[in-house]
């Protein structure tokens, strides 16, 4: 991401226009920050197991009493909702980006 940022800064120095293939590459970076955050989070969450609070509280001891079926139902609902909203987000993003180019 850092390389891409510096590369972009270099390519647009003194009001120069970046080449089209490069713009497409940068467009691909739209989700890089998001991906990096998720990956970092995943690493910390998995890395600290089996502790919830290292040395003080185990994850197994802190888990609530909700049944597997309840957890399954809510997880499914969250995944479906977030997937639908992510798709909607992509549609809106594309739509707004297209509108910007016409203006």
């Amino acid at each position: 991401m850092l390389v891409a940022a510096w590369w972009g800064a270099w390519a647009t120095r003194r009001g120069m226009l970046a080449p089209r293939w490069m713009l497409w590459t940068l467009a691909g970076f739209t989700f890089s920050g998001w991906l990096a955050t998720l990956c970092g989070w995943l690493v910390t969450e998995i890395g600290r197991q089996p502790w919830l609070v290292t040395g003080i509280l185990r994850t197994a001891d802190a888990a609530g009493g909700a049944s597997g079926a309840q957890l399954g139902a809510s997880l499914t609902a969250y995944v479906v909702t977030y997937t639908a909203m992510f798709l909607a987000y992509l549609v809106v993003l594309t739509h707004l980006a297209g509108k910007g180019a016409q203006a």
């Binding site: 009493g65 909700a66 809510s74 609902a77 969250y78």
Partner: peptide, 26 residues
């Protein structure tokens, strides 16, 4: 803990309306 499922439904409801609020205008 006792209200696990209704809390989940409420959160999904609040998420949907929050997103709809921002997107319906566009």
């Amino acid at each position: 803990g006792a209200l696990y499922l209704p809390v989940a439904w409420m959160l999904i409801g609040l998420m949907l309306r929050g997103v709809a609020f921002e997107f319906r205008i566009k």
